[in-house]
Design a protein around this nucleic acid. Structure first.
Lengths: 341, 341
DNA sequence: ATGAAAGCGCTAACAA
DNA sequence: TTGTTAGCGCTTTCAT
């Protein structure tokens, strides 16, 4: 029993187990992986010694030869945002039963940083990648695809990237919210639209379609641009309130914008929902605690994460690359006080 | 230029670079790491070919020999919780300049799952670990420390674990909140205390000390147990309102509890802050959007993450293990409407 | 300035 | 059932 150094806590290896037992490393390896034919006796001895020595598989070494790390990368703009945090959780939970772990990288909406982080993930040999990207070109992902690394895009589709996509059905979100306002008797429905071209215009398209379907006019003055934070919702709403006839219902791009809008409405001395009904989108989990609890459209965050993860697992398992899929999660309405009239 | 297979996208290796250039792998390796003496000419050729082939370092292979992965593990109860999400962000940001990445694992407050996740992190050979643990014994971390893996505990100290700790100064939080209520003229100050023994009792201790320091009696009827969610704050507050004299100020274990308490107060037809002033703790980022914006104590989330990460980097860099440190972040008061009187 | 040899800890293929 | 041989892609001596 050789001494392996005095101070350094060299981790125990399969060799350490093998030496004491007069078996080969291969035998140890097989036992530890429940693979191949091993006598019950040997198996027991190995297992016991492994426990005694507190052996831990070295996944780095294993990965080098098997070419699988059982790790996937998750590339996110910001995991402080509740939406992405929940997606991350859902992803982690659905891959865990498959023995997979998740490395999360985030890039603060900076495409260059995103590229760096993606490269780092690749260098760490992740078995697959899920990304909510801010890239404007498809170069980055083409490179990744060229390396045959399974990829699933979420939330934001990137044109020209031949990969599966999972996201909210933004047009359905706009339709659902607007139809709900119509059903509540609103006739002058405004829209505070968001910034990100794809998502925001899909939501707006849904808004338009809902109006048209119910024979309501689409008034361009009732469509005001906001960004995605509450301050922009506030000023957009103020603009709307300046000239009559003021709307009796507003569909806001997302919940923060709706919160800002509600503040503007309250400051104007108007009542929610009696004077103006408000609907947001996103169902951030504090929407329930607001001065007036906010009606909103839940975009199925957990499902997005889960579906993306499942598609990825599928791709990783498959021999030939499965066909590209485009999954849109159907939104659901969460009715609260801001539209109860 | 040999063909490396027809369909499989074998990643390009240093050997691929070397072959085309008639140099050895060693030379390539040296160039790529800016190490050793290499002629400017060779360096240029290698670099160029690497770019042409779109070479990516295989960190798995490198790690196997260097015994460093440049990856740290972050073990969290729940990264959906804004506190932990922000900690994670701060950690990721402070280790990034050192070339480190973060693998986040979360264990949903389940100590057994936590152990599994910790083992998985170790098996992936993380260079260090930051954990907000739910362990009741010190076994797990003793095992990790025995392997000489740098460890920093955050948020929740585990008794008997000889590792550095970074967390909020919970007693100071209790003192700060309570003193503030006193300064605002409250004389009957209640406390809705939380569940987790360590943190909750420290906050309560601060509450007591503040009262004593200002010669106010500590009335046991004014200390009501809550959990850490808003529903428990709601029922705890209702209990308090049942028998007079009702308090004129409440310090709540955390913001969700405070939100629940505020709902109970409003339902009882009482005004915040005129009848009862409310102070929370945690400064969750929506505290500002509530019916009555909530005065709260910011626990320095970002600092906790940053400090922990810095201590860890320090330990990883050090030859001998640096001494164990215990860092308590000084809280700051965020005054909003719920205590403005 | 460059390269040959050895090996990190493990698994895959094949013998025995 | 067990062990031998040969790497995985890289870095580390140590020659040259």
């Amino acid at each position: 029993m050789g001494c392996r150094g005095i101070l350094a806590a060299m981790p125990v290896t399969m060799l350490d187990i093998a030496k004491g037992l007069n078996v080969s490393v291969v035998t140890v390896s097989k036992v530890l992986r429940n693979q191949g034919k091993i006598s019950a006796a040997t198996r027991k001895r190995v297992l016991q010694r492994a426990k005694e020595l507190n052996y831990q598989t070295n996944w780095i070494a294993r990965s080098l030869v098997t070419r699988r790390t059982f790790t996937i990368g998750l590339l996110l703009p910001d995991f402080t945002h509740p939406f992405f945090a929940e997606v991350a959780k859902a992803v982690a939970e659905t891959v865990r039963p498959h023995g997979y772990h998740v490395i999360i990288s985030y890039f603060e909406e900076d495409p260059d940083l995103e590229k760096n982080e993606a490269d780092a993930l690749m260098a760490r040999q992740v078995d697959g990648l899920i990304a909510a990207s801010a890239q404007s070109s498809s170069d980055l992902f083409e490179g990744i695809l060229a390396r045959k690394v399974p990829l699933v895009l979420i939330d934001r589709p990137i044109p020209g990237v031949p990969a599966s996509f999972v996201g909210a059905d933004n047009e359905a979100i706009g339709k659902l919210a607007t139809s709900h306002l119509i059903a509540r008797g609103c006739t002058r429905i405004a829209h505070l639209r968001g910034p990100k071209i794809g998502i925001a215009s899909a939501r707006m398209a849904g808004y338009r379609h809902a109006l048209q379907k119910h024979d309501l006019a689409v008034t361009s003055r009732y469509i005001v641009g906001a960004r995605y934070v509450d301050s922009s919702g506030y000023s957009a709403m103020r603009k709307l309130l300046q000239q009559p006839p003021i709307p009796d219902g507003v569909f806001c791009y997302n919940d923060p914008v709706a919160i800002g809008a509600m503040r503007a409405i309250a400051e104007a001395g108007l009542k929610i929902p009696q004077d103006i009904a408000v609907v947001g989108a996103g169902n951030v989990h504090y929407s329930d605690f607001l001065a007036v609890p906010l009606t909103t459209v839940d975009q199925g965050t957990v499902q997005i994460g889960r579906q993306a993860a499942e598609l990825l697992m599928e791709q990783i398992g498959a021999k030939r690359k499965p066909r590209i899929r485009r999954v849109l999660i159907t939104p659901t309405l969460v009715v609260r006080q801001s539209s109860q009239r």
